[in-house]
Amino acid sequence: MLTQYDKRVLNAIQGALPIAERPFAVLAKQLETTEEELLTDLKRLSDDGYIRRFGAFFDSNALGFHGSLVAVKVKEDSMQEVADAINRYNGVTHNYEREGEYNLWFTLQVQSEDERDNVLKKISELPGVLDLMNLPSEKTYKVRVRFNMD
């Protein structure tokens, strides 16, 4: 079970990891603990599966990438094969089976229209794919996965 303190830690580390030589020492100070203890706690929380990883988040547009959400209608008995084939693309970051007529939704990041057309053509030709809808993003208002632990 998570203690109150664990929840405070999980909330704090989802925010900004400071750009500093010892970033965890800065966070530890905010949490009124020591760097050493915080690192021990982080190790425990990731071993227990609460923390997926520590990472950096980039603005894909600023790096010259374009994002799409793609909705696919897949024959139920081909789902596994289609999902696996889609997952093999490096530009596919999220792929979720959802309830509804379009039952597989994935996000695709590409550097050019040509690349996108090429990938989507190949996916649309996979056995079991009945229909595919490309929904490019226009404006991004928010991309931030943050969970309040309370």
């Binding site: 925010g15 750009i19 923390i51 520590f54 790096l63 991309v143 969970f147």
Partner: peptide
Amino acid sequence: NDLKECGVLRRMGAVLQHRHA
């Protein structure tokens, strides 16, 4: 700091296992 400034780097931090959470 430069990457942050020019908007390429949005932030750094932990990603939680949200189903687990």
